[in-house]
Design a protein around this nucleic acid. Structure first.
Length: 300
DNA sequence: GACCAGGTAGCAA
DNA sequence: TTGCTACATGGT
């Protein structure tokens, strides 16, 4: 077991609010662990765990990473390997939040969201699990998306031993593609079950992670070739897994925010509205979207 | 029992 | 292209 600490001073561009980042509904790759009363999280601020697929680990096998933020300026991690660079990448700690805020348009609502959701970051999650999670997100509450993702991993993913416990990696495309649709129905995916199966089959040939190298437009079009992926899901995958930080997913929450505060961006179709938002908010439009989304949800 | 939940595919005009 | 509607399931 290796451990490490990363500095995240809250009044700087390196700020991180771990709970906000992981519990605001933008990632379904992490889950909160029951408190262990350990030195790792002495103030019970929350311990979170992910199992990285072996395609993205330096050890070429699935790896568990455990993190906690015992104080606002400290991020702790535990793993079987030296995971500091991996953790920095997963939370995009290289993104300077203050610099990003300066690129965004002057706007009172946006500035309030940035102030009140301080430390919220865009995750950099593995592409395939993110793709499946957001296909499952259609007409589904956020807690239930988490449950579906966990159910898929526990039923179809390989077990990984860590710190005396058994975790499950999210299945790779071929592992998910070979599962019968009836199994996915049993996991309560509903009408999404065939979408997930067909997407997994396609992902064995077209690796979603490879789309990060494409332009925003090219990746956006290519993602929609996967069954169950429209404009919104494509934008989520691009933003949360491919590093396309200008992606601006339009869902029911953001629609309300735009209607109330940014009506000049609202067009006939969601696609046109998203394009207007990307132009208005600029290269970090995705950060604007995440802060506005989190702010709207925390108000309810 | 309706109604809703981080939407999309399939089909008609 | 644009405008419907059905879609599984569980929670209010």
């Amino acid at each position: 077991m290796e451990q490490g600490t990363i500095s995240t001073p809250p009044d700087s561009g390196a700020a991180l609010d771990l709970k906000r980042t992981l519990q605001s509904g933008q990632t379904f790759c992490w889950r909160r662990e029951l408190e262990r009363g350990s030195l790792f999280d002495p103030h019970d601020t929350g311990i979170y765990v992910t199992v990285l697929p072996r395609s993205v680990t330096p050890t070429n096998r699935p790896e568990v990473i455990r993190v906690a933020q015992p104080s606002s300026n400290t991020l702790r991690w535990e793993a079987r390997f030296d995971a500091e660079e991996t953790v920095r990448s997963l939370f995009r700690l290289g993104d300077d939040l203050e610099s990003i805020g300066e690129t965004l348009p002057d706007d009172a609502v946006l500035e309030q969201a940035f102030a009140e959701e301080r430390g919220l970051r865009i995750p950099n999650d593995p592409a395939f699990p993110t793709l499946i999670a957001f296909i499952c997100s259609a007409q589904m509450s956020i807690p239930r998306i988490h449950r579906m993702q966990s159910a898929i991993a526990e039923q179809l993913g390989v077990p990984v031993q860590f710190d005396g416990e058994t975790y499950h990696a999210f299945p790779a495309p071929d592992e998910l593609a070979t599962a019968p649709e009836s199994t996915l129905r049993d996991l309560k995916l509903g009408y999404r079950a065939p979408y997930v199966k067909q997407t997994a089959e396609r992902a064995t040939e077209t690796h979603p992670a490879d789309l990060a190298a494409l332009s925003y437009d090219a990746a956006h079009a290519e993602l929609q070739e996967f069954m169950g992926v429209g404009d919104k899901v494509a934008d989520c995958v691009q933003l949360y897994a491919l590093g396309h930080l200008n992606a601006f997913p339009i869902d029911t929450w953001i629609e309300t925010v735009l209607d109330e505060h940014f009506s000049h961006l609202v067009c006939e179709t969601d696609a046109a509205t998203a394009r207007a938002a990307r132009e208005y908010f600029g290269e970090y439009a995705g950060y604007a979207q995440s802060y506005l989304f989190a702010h709207a949800r925390s108000a309810n």
